[in-house]
Design a protein around this nucleic acid. Structure first.
Lengths: 236, 236
DNA sequence: AAGTGGTCTAGACCACATT
DNA sequence: ATGTGGTCTAGACCACTTC
């Protein structure tokens, strides 16, 4: 654990515990340097983390302040920053999968473009429905280059593909690029996600990258509209 | 313009121009220090910006690499990082507004909670439909404390409320916290956004903050589903 | 063993807000 | 004028990858 992480965590805890309340002014950077026996750059880095997480604001010439946020919203922020994105929303619930398609196919032009593949390259074509506590939640359509992800079996798709990639293959995931859109559900989605005829869906198109900058997954995830929520903080 | 911004911009331009191609290795930090006559910390900060923007990846012990991204996707990344969020999606088009409601009301409990107000505080209650090139696009429901935003008139809502806040009042907006969800449209939305009975909508709930950490706006924006797209980069 | 990026420092100077 | 946070440096040492 780095020093700037320790400082950021400590201050975050003080905010969560209410030792630092909304609109409170934080100690000056120079005082935090003394308190944590750290240099200015290190303290600044710690505070900058809390700024991007949406907890505090900094004003040159004035000081640093806790944002005016309710306890409930503050807790949500802290939780959603511990786990990234949507991933661990269902951490306490049972996640299972029904694999509809698991095959290896030549890459289409769209997939080649997203994954930056050559014409001849083959990809896994995986379609599955994911259940949370037995309720259908997402229909995922994934493409992954077989050259990059060797040895993937239908069984892995039934469980967690990511744990195969990170655990068995020892890869590390660096980032993902997502685009969120909305549309009406089609018949397959209605049947698989137990939706009514005119129910909408949230569509998350994603390209995921490994540590070395190589795209390893292009996926389209179709979410039931009633349990989809994407939260984000934008700092200008 | 800071030195780290100049360095980041220069490298970004090299990527856009194709001087640095997908999967290319960047010069080592130590060489970039020489090239730009900058210290290691400054070069690192420049590169870290490009990492959070999704353009490059860094690997300790190996080097820094351009992500494996198609030209089209790379250009989209660069553009969406120049303007933040959804705001300037319609920069070349005519934006106009139909104001349905413009009144001052006592704050409800939800609004008080989001904006951290006291019981007695009054807020603007503004409902408007925004048109892009004459086509209805978003229905916005905004609440803002009158104490914080004095002198707002119906006329401002017809044009740009943000230009009143940033221009006339001289405030600076620091950040916004957004939650995106999906649902079916209701009758009012169908009529105002020219939607069919069973068309869906994308709902963006937002709390926006000023430089001093004070929440000045709570809004619910209901978007036509066919022109809503939210793109984001998540770095783990 | 050599070289990469990551962290951290002590101190200089700058830009901005308040007094 | 004072004090805040912002930038930048030169150099030390660490963690990791590659050879």
């Amino acid at each position: 654990m780095t020093k700037y992480m320790q400082i950021a965590n400590d201050i975050r805890n003080n905010i969560v515990k209410g030792i630092l309340k909304p609109n409170d002014q934080l100690p000056f950077e120079k005082d935090l340097c003394e308190k944590y026996d750290a240099s200015k750059m290190t303290v600044k880095k710690a505070l900058d983390i809390l700024v991007t997480q949406g907890l505090i604001v900094k004003r040159r010439g004035s000081g640093t302040f806790v944002k005016s946020i309710s306890n409930a919203d503050m807790n949500k922020l802290v939780i959603s920053n511990q786990f990234r994105g949507l991933t661990a929303l269902y951490s306490n619930q049972k996640v299972s999968s029904e694999v509809l398609t698991f095959e290896v196919v030549p890459s289409s032009e769209i997939v080649r473009n997203k994954l930056q593949l050559e014409n001849e390259d083959f990809v896994y074509n995986i379609l599955r429905v994911r259940y949370v506590d037995g309720a259908p939640t997402v229909m995922e359509h994934m493409y992954m280059p077989i050259a990059l992800i060797p040895g993937l079996k239908r069984k892995n798709a039934t469980e967690s593909i990511y744990s195969y990639i990170e655990g068995d293959l020892g890869y590390k995931i660096q980032s993902s690029h997502r685009a969120i859109s909305v549309r009406k559900s089609n018949e397959l989605e209605q049947s698989k996600l137990k939706l009514e005829v005119n129910d909408p869906v949230a569509v998350v198109e994603q390209v995921a990258y490994l540590e070395n900058g190589v795209a390893f997954e292009y996926s389209i995830s179709v979410h039931r509209y009633d349990n989809f929520l994407f939260e984000t903080v934008i700092v200008i």
